[in-house]
Amino acid sequence: MKVKIKKWTGVGTWSYKVDYDNCGICRQPFHGCCPYCKWPGETCPVVWGQCTHCFHIHCMAKWLKAQEPREQCPLCRQKWRYA
């Protein structure tokens, strides 16, 4: 018995290669989006610090603004520097 394929549709997924499943600030999954975004993807990327912790970019920006002038990582309290 032979099978003839008439139509084929490829499906792809994306995910960030992170050590954690959720953002350390908002606790939302990285494959989703932060509370400030409507849709996951390129508009809500993940950012890493030199301390190797990662967060949604919007969560980190809001955290840093609230913590001025200290600007520390929310998890380890080291000075925040983007990796």
Rank of each mutant, 00 (worst) to 15 (best):
E68D: 07
H53N: 08
H31Y: 12
Q28S: 09
V47K: 01
C23G: 04
T13I: 11
C51M: 11
H53M: 06
C51H: 07
V47F: 02
R81M: 10
N22F: 14
K38H: 10
K7G: 07
Y20S: 10
P69E: 06
K65V: 04
K6F: 12
I5D: 09
K38I: 04
W48I: 00
G24Y: 06
G49T: 03
G12S: 15
W14Y: 15
V47I: 10
P29N: 14
Y82R: 12
A66C: 02
M60T: 07
W48P: 00
F30I: 03
W63T: 01
C44Y: 00
L64P: 04
P74G: 05
A61G: 09
W80F: 09
G24H: 10
C54H: 05
N22Y: 15
Y16L: 05
T9S: 10
K2N: 11
C44K: 01
W80E: 00
Y20I: 08
W63G: 01
W39T: 03
W48F: 10
E68L: 08
W48L: 05
I57D: 04
Y82P: 03
V18Q: 02
W48C: 01
N22S: 14
Q72G: 03
V47E: 01
W8A: 04
F30H: 00
W39Y: 06
C73Q: 01
V47R: 01
C44I: 04
F30M: 04
T9Y: 11
V11S: 09
W39V: 06
I57L: 12
K2A: 09
C76I: 07
R70C: 06
G41K: 11
L75Q: 05
C73V: 03
K65T: 07
V47C: 06
Q72T: 11
T13R: 15
V11T: 10
Q78T: 05
C59E: 04
K4E: 14
H58N: 05
E71R: 15
G32K: 06
N22Q: 14
G24A: 08
H56R: 11
V11E: 12
A66E: 07
K79E: 02
V11L: 14
W14R: 14
R77P: 08
G24C: 09
S15Q: 15
V47D: 00
H53D: 03
Y16S: 05
Y16N: 04
C34T: 05
C59F: 05
K62S: 09
I57V: 11
W63F: 04
W63N: 01
Q78K: 13
D19V: 08
V3I: 14
K7W: 08
C51T: 06
G49F: 00
C54Y: 02
C76W: 08
M60C: 09
C51N: 08
I25W: 05
I25L: 12
K7M: 09
S15P: 08
L64C: 10
V47T: 04
